[in-house]
Write a protein that binds this DNA or RNA. Structure first.
Lengths: 216, 216
DNA sequence: GGTGCGATCAGGGTGATCCCCCATATACAG
DNA sequence: CTGTATATGGGGGATCACCCTGATCGCACC
């Protein structure tokens, strides 16, 4: 337990919060730098190469996920600990998928945060108790869903109905029967969906739907 | 930190190891019982309802995964901490998929094990440092696979290659280009796969592949 | 040396998909 | 009233998917 203090970079768009974290962690970890935007974060992280990046999930310009993506392209081994007010499952899932090795809420104490940083630095996975369930449940294959989607939003109700059936592998004929319309109308709806989502065939459409967990 | 000692049941087919764990945990957690087979484990767990089940992964009669499945059917909230000599990714993935909330190797010390039990009891997720990477990498969408599947087993290597590409939505032409063979040969392989798996079109094939986590 | 299997390919056919054009009715906003 | 969006349809055609019946070659097994 006499390991040297791990080094961190704090990424958050709120200066007040950054200095709060810095003060709380004083003496427990070594703060190498701060950043308040995605671009600045990427630059600072690549420059200072901290043991762990404390990363806010919600930020203008893409959020924590973008930071992880951009940094991981250039420095594969970088470890991230997500730090957020949100305990929404989608946020946790998204940032973990991107590559974060931990996720804690901002209600954490300074000592707990320092401990979490140490554990992430050692390669461990850290999750707030109430979040561990989300992550592992999602990993176990459960459905999460339930959020709003700007891409899905531009589709009309009828188009979404057709999309759902297409994604389940039904033929135009079968969909026409189910909806009591002509196969030609189904075709028209499918074309509209493909155009709006910028996809080129029903296979891509199926994958699109599965990725957004609209079916299966 | 003055919480009452959590209660555990130890499941392992080696009596020597069970008593070792019991001795190491003495005074730190309360051992409610032991089991040395899948059947006994299910019975003891449902009877004693421990806070955490310390579960060996490799056991005659199905191993830890079977225990988790059987118990979860009857007592949904039960928490499991997998304890194994193996640090193979497939073992970790399998047991976490089944529902374990943690996984540590048997090289762990008594104090560390007690701490892990406490954290799992509190709802936290616990992984040995070198295992955390496996689990999160797999969750991030990487391929793990490597297990045996009687359905997949009847496919030849070439057929599996084609299956993978079909499930990803490629056209016969595109697959032919990727594999440097004729579209007609691709067609032949697809037909063989559909026949062997008793499916009728590429949509069902995609769903089949996704369910078995061969793609996506 | 036959027998079987895997991998490669061809021709021909039917149905499905997807694209383009087009038209109609309804509803809603400006 | 006029334009726009939505839902509904049709014709025609190019491409794709799937199935069938073939074939050749190599390799392993008995």
């Amino acid at each position: 337990m006499s390991a040297p203090a791990p080094t961190v970079v704090i990424v958050d768009d709120h200066a007040l919060f950054r200095s709060g974290v810095r003060a709380e962690l004083d003496g427990l970890v070594e703060v190498l730098g701060e950043a308040e935007s995605v671009e600045e974060a990427v630059r600072v992280i690549l420059e200072r190469k901290p043991d762990v990046v404390l990363l806010d999930v919600h930020m203008p310009g893409g959020g924590g996920v973008e930071v992880i993506r951009a940094v991981s392209d250039k420095a594969a081994g970088q470890r991230f600990l997500a730090l957020s007010v949100s305990d929404a499952a989608e946020d946790v899932i998204a940032v973990v998928r991107a590559g974060a090795r931990g996720y804690v809420t901002k209600s954490i104490s300074g000592e707990e945060l320092a401990a979490a940083v140490r554990r992430v630095h050692e390669g461990d996975a850290v999750f707030s108790p109430r979040l561990a369930g989300f992550v592992l449940d999602a990993f176990a294959g459960e459905v999460v869903a339930g959020d709003i989607d700007p891409e899905l939003d531009q589709l009309t109700m009828r188009e979404r109905e057709v999309l759902r059936l297409i994604a389940r592998g039904y033929l135009y004929k079968e969909i026409a029967l189910k909806l009591s319309i002509s196969p030609k109308t189904v075709e028209a709806h499918v074309s509209a969906v493909l155009r709006k989502l910028q996809l080129s065939n029903r296979h891509e459409l199926s994958r699109w739907a599965v990725e957004r967990r609209l079916v299966d």
